[in-house]
Design a protein around this nucleic acid. Structure first.
Length: 197
DNA sequence: TTCAGGATGTACT
DNA sequence: GTACATCCTGAAC
């Protein structure tokens, strides 16, 4: 399977967030194992005019530097001191925008993802753990073993260890407000969160 | 089933 | 010092 090309990311961020639903996210571990999951929840962040975006108003700091990279770059940062969030940079280089990957379903090597998350195999999980498997940005990064060490990876390059390839389009797409950005004034109500079954 | 509280480190005021 | 694009636990219902 070939990675989605740079042009997939080089467009309006809200459209990209929608289009990413259903696609396969592949994480290649140092030993060559491929962890595969299907993206089921995304949010758009647009630095140009979105107060919830880290790079709102083109604000450049060491942390936000990755948001100014070319489309198709992974932006991963630490939040609340203990969790990581995975984003895909979008729009032409220099427009600091990205899609936050909020949730996914395990497709291949679920046992390894389960071990990363709970130190147990899939079959040993409680129903509560299965229900809350990769349904949050911090959980997804923990399951796929992603940290700031992977910040800046090129998603269009299979050799980088992280890429996205085509998956089945969702039958239905839901739209709503983004999560956890109550501080962002008018931007907090933007309908820029998308999810599917 | 929902809910409050705590963990934890970096960025920025 | 404060806030943060979060998650887990344990208690109450």
């Amino acid at each position: 399977m070939e990675p989605l090309p740079k042009d997939f990311y080089n467009r309006d961020t809200v459209q990209a967030a929608r289009a990413l639903l259903g696609q396969y996210l592949v994480r290649t571990l140092p030993d060559g194992t491929e962890l595969v999951c299907r993206i089921t929840e995304t949010e758009a962040y647009v630095g140009r005019m979105d107060k919830a975006c880290h790079a709102y108003g083109y604000k450049r700091t060491p942390r936000t530097e990755t948001l100014f990279a070319p489309p198709g770059t992974a932006y991963i940062y630490l939040i609340y001191g203990m969790y990581h969030c995975l984003n895909f940079v979008t729009e032409p280089e220099g427009e600091p925008s990205a899609v936050l990957i909020r949730g996914a379903q395990a497709v291949e090597n679920g046992d390894i993802i389960a071990k990363n998350r709970f130190r147990r195999k899939m079959e040993e999980l409680t129903s509560y753990q299965k229900k809350n498997f990769l349904n949050g940005p911090g959980k997804l990064c923990k399951g796929l073993s992603l940290t700031r060490a992977e910040n800046g990876l090129d998603l269009t390059d299979k050799a980088g260890g992280l890429y996205v390839c085509p998956g089945p389009a969702p039958a239905e797409i839901f739209v709503g407000k983004r999560i956890g950005i109550d501080y962002a004034q008018e931007a907090r109500d933007f309908p820029w969160r998308f999810w599917c079954e």
